[in-house]
């Protein structure tokens, strides 16, 4: 258990450093409120939703079972990560097998090899949006209780600066990248915010 605590302490230290690294980037400036129409705001949300619901993003925004998802040309329909994997409560698998046991610092260059990044972990369980509707995710992104304690501007900064988020656009061989780019998605979030962060009707 001491090692578990040590590992968690290490993770916490990493996240702090990670957060500081994010802070080193130039801060984003919000657009003037009302400078974007409601219609354009909804159009921008649709682009944001395309990104957030894309497998490269949503497959790790899973519930408290901690089971990441797999999807893509090699897997057919989206299904749970093979090998009976769970990220557990720690979201990095310390209780079972750590994500870092297989997921290294870089994408494997070999087809079907594991993707990688400087850090590899599931989003917190409260940020689960896998399988949720556009309207549900939209409301969630505005709720600090369910978006990692962020303002909308901080969500934009997260998308703009976070290396693991950026992995979604550089996922390694054999995986479809998320649509648009980090910069375009950040721009869409700022426009959506300026429009009053409108959400689509329930489907």
């Amino acid at each position: 258990m001491k090692k578990l605590i040590f590992a968690l302490t290490g993770l916490t230290a990493f996240i702090v450093v990670h957060a500081l690294a994010e802070e080193e980037e130039a801060p984003l400036a919000p657009l003037e409120a009302g400078s974007v129409s409601q219609e354009d705001g909804l159009a921008n949300w649709a682009k944001i939703h395309e990104v957030f619901s894309h497998p490269r993003c949503a497959n790790c925004h899973v519930d408290d079972s901690g089971i990441p998802m797999w999807s893509g040309p090699s897997y057919g329909k989206t299904r749970p990560h093979g090998m009976f994997i769970s990220g557990g409560e720690t979201r990095i698998g310390i209780e079972f097998v750590q994500c870092g046991t297989c997921h290294g610092r870089e994408n494997s260059p070999t087809p079907h090899g594991p993707p990688g990044n400087e850090v590899w972990l599931l989003a917190p369980a409260e940020m689960q949006w896998f399988d949720k509707s556009s309207q549900e995710i939209c409301e969630q992104i505005k709720d600090p209780e369910r978006n990692g304690g962020r303002t909308i501007l901080e969500v934009a900064e997260h998308v703009s600066h976070d290396p693991l988020v950026h992995w979604g656009w550089d996922p390694g061989p054999g995986r479809e990248a998320a649509p648009y780019s980090a910069a375009e998605t950040t721009d869409s979030i700022l426009k959506w915010q300026a429009a009053g962060a409108p959400c689509p009707s329930a489907e």
């Binding site: 258990m1 090692k3 578990l4 590992a7 090998m83 009976f84 994997i85 769970s86 310390i94 209780e95 079972f96 097998v97 046991t101 297989c102």
Partner: peptide, 20 residues
């Protein structure tokens, strides 16, 4: 490595740890 962090695992935990 698993037993260092989970010294009293149940069957599911063992399976999750070693199924890979």
């Amino acid at each position: 490595a698993f037993l260092e962090v989970n010294p009293d695992p149940d069957d599911e935990a063992i399976d999750r740890a070693l199924s890979a």
